[in-house]
Design a protein around this nucleic acid. Structure first.
Lengths: 242, 242
DNA sequence: GCAAAAGTGTTCGGCGTACACCCATGA
DNA sequence: TCATGGGTGTACGCCGAACACTTTTGC
């Protein structure tokens, strides 16, 4: 157990942690512009006690990296991510008092995710206005935001922040919140329509002005490249060849 | 069962390794088309003994990740890379007999790099035709190649494979070797000229037909984004807060 | 009817591609 | 003078940006 080794980790021991930067969207009130938020946990133990930090924990020797990331996510938010990707391995000598290599993941949650009722020491923060965090976590979040903004430009990642049914305005507002600038509704419509990732439904969202058509995400299309090919066993291509 | 010459590591111990995929270019003879090559080392110890593997080693507890990558590179090739970037952290439970998390880097060497005379158990391999490698190293090289091909499309990374002075044809051949397709010399010229990354010199390469102007790389421009902003010590935000 | 968002049409400029063409050198 | 690669000019097509315009609802 962890507490045991805490007394005196030998000088040559390197420990492996897994943390996750979890992005979601929140609006102050319905109709208000959305902003990017992420959950942080308050540290209750020795290094940086009292500061907010990324959710994470020690990697178990029998646990896959991605499983560890999902676990920390479930433990803090109680929800499953719509997207999960490795971000970077942070391992600078000076980033903690003893030597820790953190494999950091980043994840997306669909808009409207709620923290469990009994969540203690967990809270949502506006990604653009973070307090000083524990360790190098400000640095890590900045990099995750950079990756998010980057990836939104060449992938369909933004869908990971939306519920199953959404309007084109919903989707556009996701892009606007991430990129922090306004987009032309007319051009935006054509771009996503031509991308082949949206399935129009017969349903409309009513309530204000002209009703907007609801769309569904085309599950056949991957949200984005998530890193090295997963599961080298049976892909569609290999199945067809056999 | 695996025979360990060392005392068996406890079941809950996770060890951290650093490996590097090092790309360079080689031509069978001057003027011949270039191909992407990488150095591999033959394993002389127990797991996968005799198989070729990526150069690497255990991370020292007092050693920065990137330093460890550079060290393995120097130990095998005796040369300094022109580019070095973290690729991915591979940590699947089944990838080794005991639990190893490998922080893998990828690097570029300028064309013409020579292995040291006394190099034993090290050899260059054509990246497109690798034998079965130790562990998941075939998988890792494939991913590094994907990243290389990708990055060549939106960054100036290809310069990292060339010497200080080069012709536009040299540079074009780098792209052609990486992308494995021919490029229009006329259009290629305009694209790189407009990118502002090349400094024309007054020198020409003579020897065959019309002499070609030699160019130099503009050092003011970074080859590419290499990951999280380096030097995490004093960020603007933390300075202001203190 | 009016405001406002949904949705369509049109124009313009940049940029990548294709390709014709001229230039300079070695043999 | 010819072959060959260096280097220039030009036309086409696509796509993103800008923006005018029509449609459909709530009030």
């Amino acid at each position: 157990m962890v507490i045991m080794t805490r007394t005196d980790p030998p000088r040559d021991v390197i420990r492996v942690a897994v943390s996750t930067v979890i992005f979601s969207l929140r609006r102050d009130r319905p109709g208000a512009p959305a902003s990017v938020v992420l959950p942080l946990v308050r540290r209750t133990r020795n290094p940086h006690e009292g500061l907010w930090a990324l959710p994470g924990g020690w990697l178990d020797a029998t646990e896959q990296l991605e499983t560890a990331a999902s676990r920390t996510l479930a433990e803090t938010t109680g929800l499953a991510p719509s997207y999960l990707e490795q971000l970077y391995a942070f391992g600078d000598v000076g980033r903690s008092s003893d030597r820790v290599v953190s494999i950091v993941y980043w994840a997306l949650l669909r808009e409207g995710a709620q923290l469990p009722e009994d969540a203690e020491n967990v809270a949502w923060f506006d990604a653009a206005h973070l307090p000083p965090l524990a360790f190098d976590h400000n640095h890590i979040v900045e990099y995750a935001l950079w990756r998010l903004r980057n990836k939104v430009g060449y992938s369909r990642i933004a869908h990971g922040l939306l519920p199953d049914l959404f309007t084109l305005a919903d989707l556009r507002e996701v892009y606007e919140a991430i990129l922090d600038r306004d987009l032309d509704p007319a051009n935006f419509r054509r771009q996503v329509e031509n991308s082949g990732t949206l399935i129009p439904t017969d349903r409309f969202r009513t309530g204000s002005h002209r009703p907007a058509r609801l769309y569904r995400y085309n599950q056949d299309v991957e949200l984005a490249e998530r890193g090295p090919l997963r599961d080298p066993s049976p892909t569609r291509h290999q199945k067809a060849a056999s």
